[in-house]
Design a protein around this nucleic acid. Structure first.
Ligand SMILES: [Zn+2]
Ligand SMILES: [Zn+2]
Length: 695
DNA sequence: AGCACGCCGACT
DNA sequence: GTCGGCGTGCTC
């Protein structure tokens, strides 16, 4: 029993550890790396993690002014084990964030305040004693087709090998890939010491999915983990995962960092999904972190999708990822909908079409569908009534005063359902001006269509039909989404208009016609991933059609002014290979990911010029140190695609390299520069983003 | 990140 | 006179 000096990491944006003394006698044990402790930091009592142990002080110089404080107590929060610490160290280095921030993102945030510790402990004890009264369920035994059997067998063999493996399960909609991976993890968790992590996109983590998992994995403790849990739910879920009670973890991206006692396999469903990428703070990709974690733990990881990311597909082609394929529909009765690309080149400039958003053919098909007592879904990835309000006389546009975007015209907005202008970036809501703010003209017009206008137009044009709109505006309150989806399931509506949220998670058994509207802007976009993303969306959306009996007339209607675009052939043929090869070829020529690695350095302040100055300074700094550019292409500072959000000017520098290590080295230098900058000028924020997916 | 310290403008 | 704005420095 003696005194030590420990380096503590805490949850503040500082790349610095703080030294405290450790009185073994008082604390009742010797220090251990990974222990969560209470310390006084400044005047506040906070949680920290023991990160380094020394027998002598390493910070105390001969006559430095400050005194080293003592560790106050050890937290009842379980110690962070070596495997997790290694994971956090990797994330800290790769995503260039302080280790303390990474560690504490894996622990429910209430644990950050030592005053809460007794309360949290008590709450866990209480829930444990309560026990879970799970309804007794009939074991649901699945039947598999030959392809599925083969895939399951291959996966089980992998998990028996006890080493790292990475597999991609390519499954078209309805091919039963969920059943395949659930059967796999069910078999793995027959060993009660083993745990499996299933990552799913936010939007897919529905009560139905939870039920499906529970029905298939009877008798196993299934723990759901996502950001919408209450603090107490989150706390108990985290507890059951770290102590091994919860054998199956189904969670969103945040669960990739959660401590798991004996993680034995990871599944990443819909691996291409953009919600795996955190867009603020530590901007990690849960998919990439999960793969790293699997490799480190020497366990198998399974990526699933009908439309893989090009990063994943490229590795499949290069045999760095094994491929398992499900090409047959699991339900033989289900019909494959026919796909119709409707050319609207001649309509786009007609005012009738501009107002309606739907062409005559589409309207006719919706009508016919309803006559056959079937349902239609209309997808439009834009909520509100119209994306912009404009003055016909002087060309004034409804620009948001905080952002460099247009305020969207909502005909029904908020609780009082009044027409309003809404900015989807900063949330600013304003009344519709009586007349043009510039010239006083009263003739203000809306441009383009949105969910609300399509809904209204169908109500007007096809009056006999019952129509329902589903977007975040009508599903904002908790539980209302489920209620609305029930209306669809119970045939209370003929036509459903909605955004992307319609296309995920729900199988509708009576949908015959699916209409996709307003996709042309993303076919020719500045975002080099736009086509890839759009393909994934279209496949997802198309998968909503023909998912029941007696749907032989099922069709997908896609309205476009560019019917010759290669994306449509790919959709029609269900031929991913050729299309992906073409996309990969384009990327290769342009040296874009997956043929290079990217990072963004972003500057944010009230002043665009200052951003540019600082980033120019950064570029010069990088070019002046060492050999020219260190194997990285450093682009010039440019305003971000949305230059101003909430009154903050945003500027970026793009970095590209074919060599990940060189990019890492370069980014570490940038981090130094940014840290130095921080003490010089606090009005500007510098953010580094690794592997950005939106610009 | 927070929090204290400190130095100027504009208020009872 | 002092209340409070936020620029700057520091936290073991
Ligand atoms: Zn005007
Ligand atoms: Zn705005």
């Amino acid at each position: 029993m003696k005194t030590y000096f420990v380096q503590i990491a805490i949850d503040i944006p500082l790349f610095k550890l703080f030294e405290y003394s450790w009185n073994s006698e008082q604390l009742g044990q010797e220090p251990e790396i990974g222990l969560i402790v209470e310390i006084e930091f400044g005047k506040k009592k906070v949680s920290g993690i023991v990160y380094e142990i020394n027998s002598e002080s390493i910070s105390k110089k001969e006559n430095s002014a400050y005194t080293i404080k003592e560790v106050i107590q050890i937290s009842p929060c379980p110690r962070i084990k070596d495997a997790e610490l290694k994971l956090f160290q990797f994330a800290s280095k790769y995503y260039l964030r302080p280790i303390g921030e990474v560690v504490f993102s894996s622990i429910p945030s209430d644990w950050k305040k030592p005053v809460n510790w007794p309360k949290l402990q008590k709450s866990i004890k209480k829930k444990e004693n309560l026990g879970i009264k799970e309804a007794i369920r009939e074991p649901l035994t699945l039947t598999f087709n030959e392809e599925q059997d083969k895939a399951i067998e291959a996966l089980i063999n992998l998990s028996k090998e006890g080493k790292y493996s990475i597999t991609f399960l390519k499954g078209i909609t309805g091919s039963g890939k969920t059943a395949v991976y659930l059967e796999w993890i069910k078999r793995i968790t027959e060993d009660t010491a083993k745990q499996c992590l299933v990552l799913v996109p936010e939007i897919n983590l529905t009560p139905q999915l939870e039920q499906t998992v529970k029905n298939i994995c009877i008798g196993k403790e299934v723990v759901i983990l996502h950001s919408n849990l209450t603090p107490s739910e989150r706390n108990y879920a985290w507890w059951k995962i770290q102590n091994g009670v919860g054998q199956i973890i189904v969670g969103t991206r945040l669960s990739v960092f959660t401590p798991i006692k004996n993680l034995s396999a990871i599944v990443i469903d819909e691996e291409h999904d953009n919600s795996y990428k955190q867009q603020d703070g530590m901007r990690y990709s849960a998919r990439d972190v999960a793969i790293w974690r699997a490799a480190d733990l020497k366990i198998p990881v399974l990526l699933c999708s009908a439309t893989p990311s090009l990063e994943t597909w490229d590795k499949v082609l290069k045999k760095k990822i094994d491929l398992l394929s499900l090409s047959k529909r699991a339900k033989p009765g289900a019909t494959i909908p026919s796909i119709e690309i409707i050319d609207i080149k001649n309509e786009v400039n007609q005012s009738k079409f501009k107002n309606l958003g739907l062409c005559d053919y589409t309207l006719e098909e919706i009508k016919k569908t309803a006559l056959r007592k079937k349902q239609s879904l209309i997808f439009i990835n834009r909520r509100g009534y119209a994306p912009i309000l404009t003055c016909h006389a002087c060309n004034w546009k409804s620009e948001c005063k905080n952002c460099s975007t247009w305020q969207v015209f909502h005909k029904i907005s908020g609780k009082n359902k009044k027409p309003m202008l809404q900015c989807h970036h900063c949330g600013l809501i304003e009344r519709i001006p009586e007349a043009c703010p510039e010239c006083g003209n009263q003739d203000l017009r809306h441009l383009g269509v949105g969910t609300q206008s399509i809904e209204e137009n169908i109500e007007k044009t096809l009056q006999e039909l019952r129509i329902l709109r589903i977007d975040t505006d009508v599903t904002r309150s908790k539980g209302s989404a489920e209620e609305l989806f029930q209306k669809i399931h119970q045939q209370e509506v003929d036509v459903v208009v909605g955004t992307q949220m319609l296309s995920k998670g729900h199988d509708f058994s009576n949908v015959e016609t699916v209409v996709v509207v307003d996709i042309d802007k993303s076919l020719y976009s500045y975002d080099f991933r736009a086509t890839e993303k759009m393909y994934a969306q279209l496949v997802q959306v198309a998968g909503r059609g023909g998912r029941g009996d007696n749907l032989e007339n099922s069709k997908i209607i896609i309205q476009t002014a560019f019917p010759e675009h290669k994306i449509f052939n790919a959709i029609k043929d269900e031929n991913l290979y050729e299309f992906y090869n073409e996309l990969l070829e384009e990327r290769k020529i342009a040296q874009l990911p997956p043929f290079s690695y990217q990072a963004l350095v972003m500057a944010e302040s009230k002043n665009q010029t200052m951003n540019e100055e600082v980033l120019k300074g950064l570029k010069n700094f990088l070019e002046n140190i060492g050999n020219k550019n260190n194997g990285c292409i450093i682009y010039d500072p440019v305003p971000r695609s949305i230059q101003r959000v909430s009154g903050v000017e945003r500027t970026q520098v793009l970095l590209e390299s074919t060599d990940r290590k060189k990019l890492q080295t370069c980014l570490e230098k940038i981090l130094d520069y940014a840290e130095a900058q921080k003490s010089k000028n606090r009005s500007i924020r510098i953010i580094i983003e690794r592997d950005p997916i939106s610009f």
